[in-house]
Design a protein around this nucleic acid. Structure first.
Lengths: 344, 344
DNA sequence: CATAATAATGTACGCGTGTACATTATGGCA
DNA sequence: TGCCATAATGTACACGCGTACATTATTATG
C-alpha cells in the first residue's frame, strides 16, 4: 500500500489522452491546450497521482540529488559543531528552492574516498565536500574528482588545483581584522593560538595575523604562537603555556571559539581575570561565543551563506551546463563582532 | 563523461555470460560457479563498472533512502544544534552500515506537511520525523502518515495515536532524577523554568518534577513555576521573575541548557552568586553545559543513540516486513551529570 | 479556398536493472 | 548407462517515465 498507487497510464485513461500528453502537462513541456491541461491535472488529482521520482530520475538519467559529503569519525560527533549546522541549513535552503534532494554522505577521513563513484552510480548529480584537510588521502580524492570534470565544490579549504571549485571565507582578512582590533586597543604583544595546520585556513589565519603585525611594525615572535587543534580541550591545554607567558602578553588571537572557550576556562582556573589580564579575540561567532564570561569578541563567518552559495552555483551549473562557469571560486567576507573579551 | 560509462551489457559481453548472470553475481543472488563469479567481477573491474543506483532503485521499486524530516525556519534556529547534530550523527551511523541513503527533508512547520507524498513519489522508503510539536498542523500530518501504515518514526515526542512509532527519552524520569538530586542537596523550595507546553516532553518534565516533590512531601507551588520557550533569551527574560522570588527559592530546575545559560546570565547581571544564591539543574547536557561558570548539573539525553535506534529499527522493518513489529516504541534512559551548578 | 506553417497530440521506444521462468549442465545413484 | 535432482545459466519482460518522431488539428496567408 505504500507503492505508488497509480501510474501515468491510469491518469491518461481517465483524462482521455495519451501518456505522453500527461507527461508533458506534468512537466510543463511543449505547447498544449489549456483545456487538456486542466483535464489531465484534474484526473491526476482525482487519482491522487504524483510523479514517481525514481522512475523520473531513471528516465532522465539524473538522480536529482545534491550530495553533501561529511567526514565521519564514529566517536567524535563531528556534526556537533556550529559550522556544519549552519552550512547544512544554507545548502538546504538552496536545494529546497530548486526542487533537488539533499543526500548526506559520510566519508571515512582515513581512506581515499571515491567521489567519482557517487556520480558513476548516479547517486548524486553534484556534491559539496565539507571538512576536507590537506592530508594526502583527502587531496588525492579531490584531485581525482576534479580531473574527471565532475560538478562539485569544496567548502572553505584551498586547493592548488585550478580545476577545484571552492567557496570559502576570507580568513586572511578576518584574522587581519581581528588582530588589528587588538592593536587598536593598544595591544602590542599579541599571541596566537592557532588550529591544526592541516587545514588551509589555519595558514590563512597565520597570514592575516602576520600582516596585521607587520603593518603595525610589531616584530613577529614565534615564542608566543601556540598550537591547538580547534578542540576545546586543546584550548584548555594551551592555557598552561599561555599562563606561563602571561606577562609577555597583552592579548591573544585564537583560531576558533571552541579553543578560546577552553583557553578561558584553563586561565580562569589558574586565577586569571579576563579580559583584564589578557584580551582575547577568537573566530567563528558560534552560538557559544556570546555565552561565555566575558562574551567573546570574535570573527563572524557567513557559513549559512557559504552553504547556500555553493549549492546554488552547483545547481545552476547543472541546469545550464553551457552558460555557467564550470569552476566556482568565491570568497566571502567575514565580520568582526566586538564584545567584552577584547576589553571593549 | 559523468554518465555511467558502461552498463551491464558490456560487462556481460566481456565476461562471456548473460546479463542476468552479471546481475546475480553483483547482488549475490542464487547459486553460481566460483569461476563465473570471478570472471564477472574481473570484467566489471576492468570496465570500471558499478551498478547504477537509480536504475536499480527503479527496478526494485524502492528508493533506498531513509528520509529525515526537519522543521525549517530560515532565520530562527529553533532547536539547539546539539540536538539535531547528535540525532543526525546517530541516524547516519545506522544508515551507513546498512547501505541506505540519508535524504534530508525540510518541512515548513506552519503548514500541514504531506508526508505520504514522500512515499508516493518514492523519494524515501521510510522516514524519521524530528522536532514535531502538538500543533494542529503537525498532528494532522503525522496522523495521516500513521493511518496509511507507512514506515516512519517520530523522535522524542508523544502521540496519542497507537499507530505512531516513537523513539523517545524518559523525560519524566530524567526530571524526577534532577529534582530529587536537588532535594538530596537539602533544597526544599525548588522552582521550575519549563519550556513551551506545545512539546509533549515539557509535560513529561512537569510530571517528573511533581513526582519528586510529592515523594519528598513538598507542596507544589505554582507561583515558582516559570514559563520559557527553550531559547536562551527566554531564560534570560525569566531571570527577572526568578530574581524577584530569590528568597523564596533554594534551587531551580530548568527545562534545557540554553534556558539555564540565559537564566544564569540574567541572574549574574543582577549580582547573583551561583550556585550560592541559587542552585540550578538543567537538561540536555549539550556541549555548552560544561562551558558555563559554574558548569551545569544537567540531565544527559542519549540523542545519538536515539537516532541510531530509530534508524536501525526502521531499516530492519524494511528488510523484513514480515517478522518485524511494525510499531516502534522505545524509551531510553537519561543520566544525571552532576557538576557545580547544583552546589556539588 | 488552397497551402503552408504551427500547435497539439499520439506512437513507440529506450533508459539499466531485477527476476520469474525456461533451459542446459552437472553429479549422484541404481 | 539411464534417470533425476539440483546447480548454473540464459531468455524475456516489466518497471514508469521522457522524448524523438509521426501524425493530426488549427490557424495564418495569399
Amino acid at each position: 500500500m505504500s507503492k505508488p498507487l497509480t501510474n501515468r497510464k491510469e491518469v491518461a485513461k481517465l483524462a482521455g489522452v495519451s501518456e505522453a500528453t500527461v507527461s508533458r502537462v506534468l512537466n510543463g513541456v511543449g505547447p498544449m491546450k489549456e483545456s487538456t491541461r486542466e483535464r489531465v491535472l484534474d484526473a491526476a488529482k482525482r487519482l491522487n497521482y504524483e510523479l514517481n521520482a525514481v522512475a523520473s530520475s531513471f528516465a532522465r538519467g539524473k538522480s536529482g540529488n545534491l550530495g553533501v559529503v561529511l567526514p565521519y569519525v564514529p566517536k567524535v560527533h563531528l556534526f556537533s559543531t556550529y559550522y556544519f549546522s549552519e552550512l547544512l541549513s544554507g545548502i538546504g535552503e538552496a536545494v529546497r528552492s530548486k526542487g533537488y534532494g539533499l543526500l548526506l554522505l559520510f566519508r571515512d577521513p582515513s581512506a581515499v574516498y571515491d567521489y567519482a563513484s557517487l556520480y558513476r552510480t548516479q547517486r548524486v548529480d553534484a556534491c559539496i565536500v565539507l571538512g576536507t584537510n590537506t592530508a594526502e588521502t583527502e587531496l588525492e580524492g579531490i584531485n581525482r574528482l576534479a580531473e574527471e570534470r565532475l560538478p562539485f565544490c569544496v567548502m572553505d579549504q584551498k586547493f592548488d588545483n585550478p580545476l577545484v571549485s571552492i567557496v570559502a571565507a576570507d580568513h586572511e582578512q578576518g584574522s587581519y581584522d581581528a588582530v588589528k582590533h587588538l592593536i587598536s586597543k593598544g595591544c602590542q604583544r599579541i599571541g596566537f593560538l592557532n588550529g591544526s595546520m592541516q587545514y588551509s585556513n589555519s595558514w590563512d589565519r597565520m597570514s592575516g595575523y602576520l600582516r596585521a603585525l607587520e603593518e603595525a611594525e610589531i616584530k613577529f615572535d614565534e615564542s608566543i604562537v601556540y598550537q591547538g587543534n580547534y578542540s576545546r580541550t586543546s584550548g584548555k591545554n594551551a592555557a598552561e603555556d599561555v599562563y606561563r607567558d602571561l606577562n609577555e602578553l597583552d592579548a591573544i588571537f585564537v583560531g576558533n571559539d571552541r579553543m578560546a572557550i577552553g583557553l578561558m576556562q584553563g586561565l580562569r582556573e589558574k586565577g586569571c581575570r579576563l579580559p583584564e589580564d589578557l584580551k582575547i579575540v577568537s573566530y567563528d561567532d558560534s552560538d557559544a561565543a556570546s555565552l561565555t564570561e566575558p562574551p567573546l569578541t570574535t570573527v563572524k563567518v557567513p557559513f549559512f551563506e557559504m552553504g547556500r552559495l555553493a549549492a546554488e552555483r552547483l545547481l545552476a551549473l547543472l541546469a545550464d551546463k553551457e552558460n555557467s562557469e564550470p569552476i566556482i571560486s568565491e570568497k566571502l567576507q567575514t565580520e568582526l563582532k566586538v564584545r567584552k573579551s577584547s576589553g571593549s
